[in-house]
């Protein structure tokens, strides 16, 4: 399955015209698809990733799809690097309108075996990667009179998940739950500045990251593929279109929300009444 496979879809042209968008983790999976889609929708897109090989692949896809991406190798959890990346993008493109916090990582270990350093490292990879870019763009969004921040959380932040094989999620779930809480609070603080902040909680999405886990364990594959109500797993484009909606002015009155893109996985297992 190619991650650039297009399943939808409606017209995208012009939906982000004139906007400058920053996207983290564009070297793979969902972030890559988001960067390409936002550029097709008319945004000026600056993307970063820690992985230079991934960035090369994304650049090649951009060329094939005939869109421009402004790519840089930056670790979203490195405060100084992120600050200079954001300053540079804002200076070259005249400001920032959209931040899409997608790049993240985790140690998946059953709780009994999880070390404190794995816990700390996971919270850095899941939470610092959201805090640091948000902090760096905040003054630019205020200067612009507003903007939209989209944080990628996960249904793992909304519901417990069984431990399959050696893949426990205590630290990951805590980080993603934190992303949802951070989103709600930042939305409340951003309102007076015209800044909207929303989360997306993807369910099972077929990406290089999830494929690696699924391929390693038939039990995990069964769980992963059996989660959605709809009879298929998610694709990066499914999340990307939700991201386009939340980044654009079509959702101008939505803030503090957590939009779950999970094929109904949470409706099936019945967690809290609202995201």
């Amino acid at each position: 399955m190619s991650t650039t496979e297009l399943l939808s879809r409606g017209p995208v042209e012009g939906r982000l015209t004139g906007k400058v968008a920053l996207v983290t983790g564009v070297g793979s999976g969902q972030g890559r698809e988001v960067a390409l889609l936002f550029a097709e929708a008319g945004a000026i897109v600056a993307g970063c990733d820690i992985n230079p090989e991934g960035l090369k692949g994304t650049a090649a896809l951009a060329a094939a799809r005939d869109v421009k991406l402004d790519l840089a190798q930056v670790d979203a959890s490195d405060e100084a690097k992120v600050a200079s990346w954001v300053d540079d993008v804002a200076a070259r493109h005249g400001g920032v309108d959209i931040l899409y916090n997608n790049g993240a990582g985790a140690h998946f270990v059953p709780f009994g075996d999880m070390t404190l350093s794995q816990w700390h490292d996971t919270l850095r990879l899941e939470l610092d990667t959201v805090f640091i870019p948000s902090k760096a763009v905040w003054p630019y969004l205020i200067a612009r009179g507003g903007g939209s921040i989209v944080n990628i959380a996960s249904i793992a932040g909304m519901m417990g998940g069984e431990v399959i094989g050696s893949a426990g999620a205590a630290a990951h779930a805590t980080g993603k739950g934190g992303v949802i809480s951070f989103t709600r609070q930042l939305a409340t603080e951003g309102g007076v500045h015209g800044i909207r902040v929303n989360a997306i909680s993807p369910g099972p999405i077929v990406t290089p990251a999830s494929e690696a886990v699924v391929a390693a364990s038939p039990d995990f594959r069964k769980l992963f593929e059996g989660m959605p109500l709809l009879k298929r797993s998610g694709r990066p484009v499914d999340v990307a279109y939700a991201g386009l909606f939340l980044a654009s002015d079509e959702s101008a009155y939505i803030t503090g929300a957590n939009l779950t893109v999970d094929g109904g996985a949470t409706a099936k297992t019945g967690i809290s009444v609202l995201s």
Binding site: A187, R196, E250, I254, T255, A257, D262, L274
Partner: peptide, 29 residues
């Protein structure tokens, strides 16, 4: 805008959800 999105092809992996369109009023997670 939100209803256009949810009724479009773009939202076809979203089901069983409750989306507040309330300027950030909803307070209980």
């Amino acid at each position: 805008g939100p209803i256009a999105f949810l009724t479009s092809e773009d939202a076809h992996f979203i089901t069983g959800q409750a989306l507040p369109v309330d300027g950030g009023l909803y307070k209980v997670g």
